[in-house]
Write a protein that binds this DNA or RNA. Structure first.
Length: 627
RNA sequence: GCCGGAGUAGCUCAGCUGGUAGAGCAAACGCCUUGUAAGCGUUAGGCCGAGGGUUCGAGUCCCUCCUCCGGCUCCA
């Protein structure tokens, strides 16, 4: 048989030859360094037989940054971890251990809980394995054999995996550890040049909170120590950008025991909030969204009608009164529909777009709160568009366009996910075909790539989620665009059609920042606190060299304020060096030192980062306008 | 909510096997009047997360709760 190499040359091999055989045919060095094959673009274990005509590529220990090469390295590292843990902790049950984005984990069921300190011991054991060297062998056996084998080893999780596995069962063995595993794996442990355990956490078996909780050990591995160092450095950088840290350092906000999950916004943080709010209003006005204001608390009856009472009550803050129970709103939609229903509507009114950035309260589980990115007081840049079936695609398109305008403004990259019909749903298949089709068409018309989350839509309609990643590489949902026919029906929203029939409008729920809280958190990390000039809480600080320069400095700051900038004068009670340093640490974009040498004709301007300019006042104003 | 870890001054942290609570930065005050990333001195600052227990004595040991951190689940 023949296989095709990356340079399109053909290699003649005996039938049933593996990628490793192919490597040997090319050269012994390659065979030694090979870690993984890519066959027709898909990663495949070196030991598996190739088929005639396969396009193969051999990844080696030199492909240190290739995601597939790292995956196989880390997958094998996870098996080494499991081997070490089984040796050190007799009676432990092993669950699963896959590679992940920046490393790997392995889930165990320990007879006794272990602690962070134990990681050192485990890591040492893995190092011992690495020093000894391990090689992996692969075997394929029947399901029954696999079942018997793991039953004999008293590995109930493996037995369960065998029972639910599809296709043939493959096993990988290294040292005295055999794992049920699809692979692929390394030939041996030599390529693992850096190994580190990074953390310990609880995780439910199969991600299901009703199943037993296992202990997950996280780790990472690289093809070189330098790569591990670079990775650790990146983690350090992420910590430096952490919005929870920067929020306190830059005096933007703080969180307090007295109201968990609800930030206190300090004056400087509120400046950023206000700028985003102004942006929100400006763009909404341009795009035909009408600002409204609806109540914060509603009678239980409304939530019963909307379905929240049934589906969402555990997340709602209730206010029991003697004669009736109120709830603080966790979402704006019911209020907006109630507003819509306050009068009769004609098809001529549609699309009708209501916008409101009201504070919402959601009683999130205590363990899920996280800085600004997961809070209990949520302020969405919310909008609800009532429209006809024919208007859906254009309206979704407009929302996507609006979202991209905002994200581009900040240089943020977004990822789009289309969630389609779930198992439990309202509406006919024809209906879902149509609405999913409309969302797809809008995404494609706007030229946006998207992934599809099959079955992840809400029970009342499909949705498009917009994700961004924070400095630690965690993906956060920011915006969401959801199509809804069920709630308008439940609340009895109607309009009169051109044919004089009563129809139910479709409702598009839409938030583009997502929430101000989370969005500001992400922006803080994205910019590492160096907010763009228009968002900077203090834009210009004038530093008088001595007390005699105070009046001139005040005059200058006043002129800048008149021109619309947030300018202030610093106290002259420290050395200039110290005050420059403070301004840098506060990340103020423009600092002006004002002393004997300065005048309206000649100002000593320092930009954030250290660049210095000498500008007259007129040129300074021109310059500020470009920042 | 679940698993693991942690809560000491505004911030970052020290405080061993129980014996009257400490540093740096920040702050206030004073001196210096400063020229592009830290001038000098003085002072003040703590119910050691909350409640209970063990003990002659608890920041330190035990229990419960709260909050925070890393995850799981959930989610904007």
């Amino acid at each position: 048989m023949k296989v095709v190499l990356p340079d399109n040359s053909e290699l003649e091999l005996p039938d049933g030859a593996s990628a490793l055989d192919a490597a040997r045919a090319i050269g012994p060095k390659l065979a030694e360094q090979a870690v993984l094959a890519r066959v027709d673009g898909r990663p495949q274990d070196l030991r598996l037989p190739l088929a005639d005509g396969d396009h193969i590529q051999l990844l080696t220990t030199r492909d240190t940054q290739d995601p597939d090469a790292l995956y196989v390295l880390r997958h094998s590292s996870a098996h080494l971890l499991a081997e070490a843990v089984r040796r050190l902790y007799p009676g432990v049950k092993v669950a699963i251990g896959p590679p992940i984005e920046n490393g790997f984990y392995y889930d165990f069921d320990f007879p006794e809980p272990i602690r962070e300190e134990d990681l050192e011991r485990i890591e040492a054991e893995v190092r011992r394995e690495l020093a000894e060297g391990r090689s992996w062998t692969r075997e394929e056996i029947s399901r029954e054999q696999a079942r018997d084998r793991f039953l004999a080893e008293e590995e109930p999780y493996k037995v369960e995996l065998v029972d639910t596995a599809e296709g043939d069962i493959s096993l990988y063995t290294q040292g005295d550890f055999t794992d049920l595993c699809r692979g692929p794996h390394l030939q041996d442990s030599k390529p693992i040049k850096a190994f580190k355990l990074t953390g310990l956490a609880g995780a439910y078996w199969r991600g299901d909170s009703s199943k037993p909780q296992l202990t997950r050990i996280y780790g990472t591995a690289f093809y070189s120590q330098a790569d591990l160092d670079a990775h650790l450095h990146q983690l350090e950088e992420a910590r430096r950008r952490d919005h929870r840290r920067l929020g306190v350092e830059l005096d933007l906000f703080h969180l307090d025991d007295i109201s968990p999950g609800s930030p206190f916004w300090h004056p400087k943080g509120q400046v950023i909030w206000n700028e985003l709010e102004a942006l929100r209003k400006r763009e909404n006005a341009k795009r035909g969204w009408l600002e409204v204001q609806t109540p914060l608390i509603y009678d239980q009856r409304l939530w019963e009608l909307s379905g929240h009472w049934e589906k969402y009550r555990e997340h709602m803050f209730l206010i029991p009164e003697p004669d009736r129970t109120f709830s603080i709103k966790p979402m704006n939609c019911p209020g907006h529909m109630w507003l819509y229903n306050s009068r009769l509507h004609s098809y001529r009114d549609l699309p009708l777009r209501y916008a409101e950035a009201a504070p919402l309260h959601r009683n999130e589980l205590a363990g899920t709160l996280h800085g600004l990115t997961r809070v209990r007081k949520v302020t969405q840049d919310d909008g609800h568009c009532f429209c006809t079936r024919d208007q859906i695609e254009d309206e979704i398109f407009a929302c996507l366009d609006h979202a991209m305008f905002l994200y581009d403004l900040f240089g943020l990259g977004a990822r789009f996910e289309l969630s389609t019909r779930p198992e439990n749903r309202l509406g006919t298949d024809e209906e879902w075909d149509f609405t999913e089709g409309a969302l797809k068409a809008a995404l494609e018309r706007r030229g946006l790539a998207y992934e599809i989350n099959e079955g992840d839509g809400a029970f009342y309609g499909p949705k498009i989620d917009l994700h961004m990643e924070d400095a630690l590489g965690r993906a956060w949902q920011v915006g969401t665009i959801q199509l809804d026919y069920g709630q308008p029906q439940r609340l009895g929203c109607t309009y009169m059609s051109a044919e004089n029939t009563e129809e139910t409008p479709y409702l598009i729920h839409r938030a583009l920042f997502g929430s101000f809280e989370r969005f500001i958190g992400i922006l803080t990390e994205h910019f590492a606190g160096d907010f763009p000039f228009w968002l900077a809480p203090v834009q210009v600080r004038v530093l008088p060299v001595g007390e005699s320069h105070g009046d001139a400095s005040l005059t200058l700051a006043g002129r800048l304020q008149d021109a619309g900038y947030r300018a202030e004068v610093g106290e002259p009670n420290e050395t200039i060096g110290k005050r420059i340093r403070d301004a840098e640490l506060e990340k103020i974009p423009v600092t002006i030192v004002y002393g004997d040498k300065e005048s309206d004709e000649s100002l000593a301007v320092r930009l954030r980062g250290g660049e210095q300019l000498t500008l007259g006042l007129v040129d300074l104003l021109t310059k500020l306008a470009t920042l």
